[in-house]
Simulated scan of single mutants.
Amino acid sequence: MELLLAAIAGLAVYGAFHGVRMYRADAKLPGDLAIALEVGATRTTAAGSAIDRIGMRHAPRVLRMMGPKRVDKVRRKLDMAGNPGGMTVDRYAARRAVYTGLGTISALAMLMNGQLVLAVLLFV
C-alpha cells in the first residue's frame, strides 16, 4: 500500500514538472526582446532582467498604446544612445508596464492611507 502511494506521489510530482516545462515551451518572445535578453544579459542587472521578464507579456500592449510614431521616436533615441544596458524598444515597453503597475498600486495604497498629495503624485 505504501509503495503504491509513493508511486502515485512520484507520478504527480513528475506530472507537475512536465506541465511546467510544457507551459514554458509555448512562450514565444518577440525577436527584439529575445536578442536583447541574449546579448544584453551581461549588460543589465539582475533586477533589470527580472523586471523585463515580468513585463514582457505586457510589452506588445504598451507598444500599441504608444503608437507607431512614438515607438519609432523611442527606438531612434535608444539607438542614438547606443542601447545602454542592452535596452531595446521591447525592453523599454516591458519596464514601462511594470513601473506603471507599481506606481498605480503605490498610489492606491497612499490613497487608502489618506495621503492624497502622494497619491496624486504617484498617479501622475
Rank of each mutant, 00 (worst) to 15 (best):
Y92N: 02
G15N: 06
R96C: 00
T104P: 02
T104G: 10
V124G: 12
V89N: 04
V62T: 03
L37T: 04
A25Y: 07
I35Y: 09
R95S: 08
S49I: 07
A34D: 06
K69Q: 14
A97G: 08
N83I: 01
M87I: 01
R70C: 10
M87K: 02
V98I: 11
T44R: 13
R96Q: 10
D52N: 12
A36S: 10
S106G: 08
H18D: 11
A7P: 07
R76S: 12
G15D: 09
V120Q: 03
Y14L: 14
L111G: 00
A12N: 06
G31M: 02
R95F: 09
V13P: 01
A7V: 08
M66P: 01
D52E: 14
D52R: 08
A81G: 09
R57L: 08
A81I: 07
G40N: 05
G40S: 11
A16E: 05
H58F: 10
L111N: 04
A16M: 05
N113E: 11
L33P: 00
R91L: 10
M112K: 13
V98T: 01
M56T: 08
V98P: 00
G103W: 06
M110R: 14
L63Q: 01
T45P: 03
P84R: 06
V120R: 00
G114W: 02
P60N: 01
L4C: 09
G85Q: 01
